[in-house]
Design a protein around this nucleic acid. Structure first.
Lengths: 230, 230
DNA sequence: CTCATGGTTCGGTCCTGATCGAATCAATCG
DNA sequence: CGATTGATTCGATCAGGACCGAACCATGAG
């Protein structure tokens, strides 16, 4: 007796090593080519080609062509959201973490979740914003307050312009490592983009980790604290 | 180049028909026996037995024994959250819905998501609560206001007593059919429990659907409106 | 134009894991 | 106690699907 959406299709697709690797790699928010994804998953190009075809057909990925290069990316935030959620379950049901390489603490500290900041830093920022009224829940969705609008402007982000985006402006996303929410949506994406632009943090090569410089982190925390004490 | 939690393990477990059926059936929040789950998945008891063993070992299920009966349930809200998220992706990536039986509209109208109300009704309630200040985002989590406390008391729920529960008191959960949040956590569970207690709605046999009576729905909407116009 | 590289298609191999019949163990009831 | 039923274990079967070599097509650079 079966009712509701058929989850086995989606799960079976993710439940293959090569495909899982590809999806995880794409959580960096970057668009990657078939060859890059094959390398990431340590399979041949032909193997990855057929896997990508399946993910495309299933609607988990989308592709754009530039000459002979085909750039694959996650189909949308809900797919990212699902992967993040599954990472959380995977993380919290593992009795030990065999793959605690040097990058694991880095991932937990700050990383890209699709297009926005996650990890301790991501959760910290979101918490502060909610705590001090920069963001507010309204109409089943997060919204930005006037105070928040001002804060973002000070950071160099025009929140109203960001709101023109056709995607979800502002929403919470459950963090796999912190088990708390961080800021997602267009606003979350704009925030990360700006942080990188300001040089407060940088992307780690071939990783989802985001590395804050000491100065960059201090700047962000300072800006946070300034707003929050007024 | 692999980093972060290994999602393939979890996905592969869900990506089997029998196991997916079992997990979906357990989204009703009920604890079911191995035999019941075997029936739900249309496999033999021995097959289901080995599947359940795997889900137990993986930490996706937990089991309690009563005599010869072993009752299985989802290990926790984060597993439910993952399944709900996957249902959302499955639902929104399916070009057509082959299984649109008579129960589908019912599921979308109101259903159980683990232990709380989901679907249109679930989203509606949550939206109203946020809109009119019964609930408030604080410290990276939802919290209840004094006004909300009063509203729940009027409904017959002592929110402070509910808060004693060791589980997450109050959080949002993304609804697969509505793509908006509904209320989850201990408070969401208490709300559904109370609605059922009041007879405003009832559980549909062998289904996750929740069926509101016309009177019950009017009562809930009325209580909602009353609070919201004050 | 040729060569290199990105990417796809085809077909054969083989490994994995779901499945169920049979058997067994455990709990419950009359 | 015997019969029934819930549940598990064992072992054999076989279907499905991941994988890659080979071949081919498409694009871009020199």
């Amino acid at each position: 007796m079966s009712e509701g959406p058929n989850i086995v299709r989606i799960a079976a697709l993710i439940g293959d090593n090569a495909r899982a690797e590809a999806l995880s790699a794409l959580m960096s928010g970057r668009a990657l080519t078939a060859t890059e994804l094959a390398d990431a998953a340590s399979v041949t190009r032909q193997t990855m080609s057929s896997h990508l075809q399946k993910l495309l057909e299933a609607g988990l990925l989308k592709v754009s062509q530039q000459g002979r290069h085909r750039y694959f990316r996650l189909a949308g935030a809900d797919v990212a959201y699902l992967i993040e959620s599954m990472m959380g379950v995977a993380f919290h049901t593992t009795t030990q973490h065999p793959r605690t390489g040097p990058r694991d603490p880095a991932l937990r500290k700050a990383r890209i979740c699709y297009d926005h900041l996650a990890g301790e830093m991501g959760v910290y920022v979101y918490q502060q914003m909610l705590e001090y009224g920069l963001l507010l829940q309204k109409d089943g969705a997060l919204s930005i307050t006037d105070q928040g609008r001002e804060w973002f402007r000070q950071l160099g982000i025009d929140a109203d312009e960001v709101a023109q985006s056709r995607r979800s402006f502002c929403r919470a996303c459950l963090d796999w490592s912190e088990r708390k929410d961080h800021l997602a949506g267009a606003l979350g994406a704009a925030l990360l983009s700006r942080i990188l632009e300001l040089g407060w943090a940088r992307r780690v090569e071939d990783s989802r980790a985001i590395e804050f410089s000491a100065q960059g982190e201090a700047s962000l925390r300072g800006l946070m604290r300034l707003r929050c004490t007024e």
